[in-house]
Amino acid sequence: MTKRRPVGVEEEFLVVDLESRRLTPLAQAMLDKLPDEGYAAELQRSVVETNSTPMEDLRDVRAEIVRLRRALVSAGEPLGVGVIAAGTTPLTGVDGYTFTPGERYQYLSDAYQFLAQEQLICGAQVHVEIDDRDVAVLAAQRVEAWLPPLLALSASSPYWLNEDSGYASSRALAWQRWPTAGPVGPYANAAEYDRTADDLVASGVIEDRGMVYFDIRLSAHVPTVEMRICDSCPLVNDVVLLAGLFRALIIRESEAVEKGEPPRGEERLALLRAANWRAARSGLEDDLLSPLTSRPMPAPQLITWMLDDLRPTLEELGDWEMVSELADQALRRGSAASRQRGALAMNGRPEDAVDLLLAETREG
C-alpha cells in the first residue's frame, strides 16, 4: 500500500482596499492582528502569505487552508481591506508598490531593481515530504514535464499593470525573469543539486539558497520537495486539487526511481520551457503540450488523460474520488483567468473582476 506523505501549502494574497479595489500597503497592519505562526510578510507591503501545517489527509489540508484564509479575511475587514488569491490583480494603483522594511527586502530592491519593483505577483506553493534526497532530486526532474498542466489549472493572472496581458498567467512570465527561475535539472544525485545551489550563491547572483527559485526544488532545511510553478488560486478546491495531483506525481515518480524504471516524461529543456509557456498562454481554454510527446492537446482532454494516468497512485492514496471530482469541477468552471475576463466584460469594469476574486477567496 502506497504511504501518504504529509503535504503543506503556502499561499500568497494581494491586499486590496475594499472601496477602491486597488492594492494597498496594509499587509503588516493585518499581520499585527494575527498570530506569528502561519502568517508572514512578503517583499511588497500589499502582499501577505499563509503557511499551512503539513497534513496527510486532503480533507484536513482543505480545512487548514480555509482556517488560515478566514482569519486573514477577519483581520482585514476592520481595516477596510480584503485579500485576493490570484497571480496578479486587475487593478494595481501606486500605493501597492511599497517595499516591506527589512535588510533582506532592501537587498532584493537594490540587487534586482525593476524585477523587485514589479514583484506584485502571488503564487501557491505545495510541499511534499520525502526523506531520501537522492530519490527526491531524481523524482523532481521526472515530475517537471507534468507541471505545466498544473500551472494551467491554477492560471489566475490575465492582467498585468492594469491591462489584459493576453495570457492566462502573466505571473508565470514575470516570475521567469528571475535568474534562478525555471526547470530544475539535470542532476544525477542530491550532491550535484546541492553543489549547483552552493555555486549559485558563490556567484553572487543570489544571496542564499532560499533564492533558488526552480519550478520544483528541494528544501535546504527540511525533507520536502516544493512545487513553485502555480499561480495563487481564488478557490480553495483548486488549491487542494493541485496539492493532491502534485503529491501523487511525487509519490509515483519516487517509487519509479526506487524500482529503476526509466522516466516517462519529456526531459529536454527547450520543450519543458515551451510547455510552461503554452500553459501560461492558454490556461484551460486552449491547447497544452503532452508530457509524453510534447504535441498539443486540448487542455480538458490532456488533464482528463493525466488523471487517468495517475489513477492507480491516487486510488492507493485514497485520493481518487476527491481529486477526480475537484478536477471535474475545475474543468467545468474554466480557469480563474477566464472567469475574471468574463466578469470584466459584463460592464467593462475591472472592479467587477476584483469583486469576483474577493468573493471567491473569501468563500473558498
Rank of each mutant, 00 (worst) to 15 (best):
L115C: 02
V135F: 00
G210W: 01
R21D: 09
G185S: 09
S324L: 11
L284V: 12
I65M: 07
R281G: 01
R177P: 02
D208K: 10
A145Q: 04
E226L: 07
E321L: 07
A359I: 07
R252F: 00
S154H: 08
D60G: 02
P262L: 02
E10R: 04
L115R: 07
A190F: 09
E321A: 10
R349D: 15
G348P: 00
A140P: 00
S290Q: 02
E360I: 05
P179D: 09
D110L: 12
T2M: 14
R171Y: 08
S170C: 11
P262W: 12
A41N: 12
Y39K: 03
E11G: 13
F214M: 08
A124M: 15
C233K: 01
V7K: 02
R45V: 02
P158A: 06
L14S: 14
E266P: 08
K3A: 15
T293A: 10
S46I: 12
Y97G: 06
T293L: 14
I206V: 15
G283V: 00
A155Q: 10
L72A: 03
V9P: 05
A279W: 09
H127Q: 14
E49V: 13
R349Y: 08
V137S: 01
G87K: 02
V83F: 00
E11S: 08
E360T: 12
R70F: 06
G364V: 05
E19R: 13
L151P: 00
E258S: 08
D32F: 06
R45I: 06
P54S: 10
M322L: 15
P183Q: 07
G342R: 12
F99A: 03
Y193K: 04
W146H: 12
E103L: 15
L331C: 07
N237M: 12
S109N: 08
R339L: 14
I303C: 10
H221N: 14
P78H: 04
A85P: 03
